[in-house]
Amino acid sequence: MAEISDAELQKLATLSRLRFEGSTLDGFRTQFDNILWLISQLKELNTEGVPPLTSTANLPSTPEREDKVTSSNNREALQKSAVKAEHGFYVVPKVVE
């Protein structure tokens, strides 16, 4: 069975911007190992030379649209859902000393 070390799991959590601690971590570990076991089954299958399928949309190219101003993305309307906004700007934790 595929297994992940505690250090790997914690690194992955940090990179995912998540935190697991104590009993939450133990429960999560077991389930994560089970999922790794599930997805590791693919190793049985020979896929040599098979191209990957990234999308079933079958579009010849990404459609483009005219670069013109529309009524969407109205700042005032969008910022009504803002966690914190002042003078039309989002207020975020200080990142520069």
Partner: peptide, 26 residues
């Protein structure tokens, strides 16, 4: 999120993500 980031991480990308996309083709 954790499984996804694991499968996309360096060293596992081909073993998991690319492989899954190939299976999708099959």
């Amino acid at each position: 999120i954790m499984v996804g980031n694991y499968a996309l991480s360096s060293g596992y990308y081909d073993a998991y993500y690319t492989k899954a996309m190939q299976v999708r083709t099959l």
